[in-house]
Amino acid sequence: MSILNKFRGKSLWMLHYCTGCGAIEMPPVMTSRYDMERFGIIPMATPRQADILLITGYLAVKTLKRVIRTYEQMHSPKWVVGFGACTVNGGMYWDSYATIKKLELYLPVDLYIAGCMPRPEAIMDAFIELRKGISSGKYEGWKKYIENYDWYKKNQAKLFDVKKWSVNYE
């Protein structure tokens, strides 16, 4: 498996979920200024082909449903990167009725980036860290999600109807 992991780390396709303000930092990372293709990471339009799910900023309950459906549509192995303070602990929306505070209650986040918003270098750092971690088999959030499926669903069910918004939910 470790050889497989090594190859996985070299070629990552990223799905960026950009409803938060942090999305503004993505264009320099993707385009020629920082050029993340140097690390074999390219943006991907559909969840089915993507390996990384990048959550940029806050998630409202409404968008969380879509994110969970997207995540469950992605093929394993898959990784989630939380981007900015909002995904860690709510950030400046800590007392908003509409947004979720801790992303790790609903999705298995492999890596968080601090900042409000993080600069492109911090995002590049995260990608390098993620590549290393994937190659060494450190990040296995997708396994955690399968193992603790009931716990995640219980947390999600507090906010919305999980039957309607999950893929293959018995």
Partner: peptide, 21 residues
């Protein structure tokens, strides 16, 4: 409705999202 002033946002957030005030 959430914008009514008798809606206690902090209380709601505490219950729903497990955050501390």
């Amino acid at each position: 409705p959430p914008m009514r002033r008798d809606f206690n946002t902090r209380e709601y957030v505490k219950d729903m999202y497990e955050t501390e005030d």
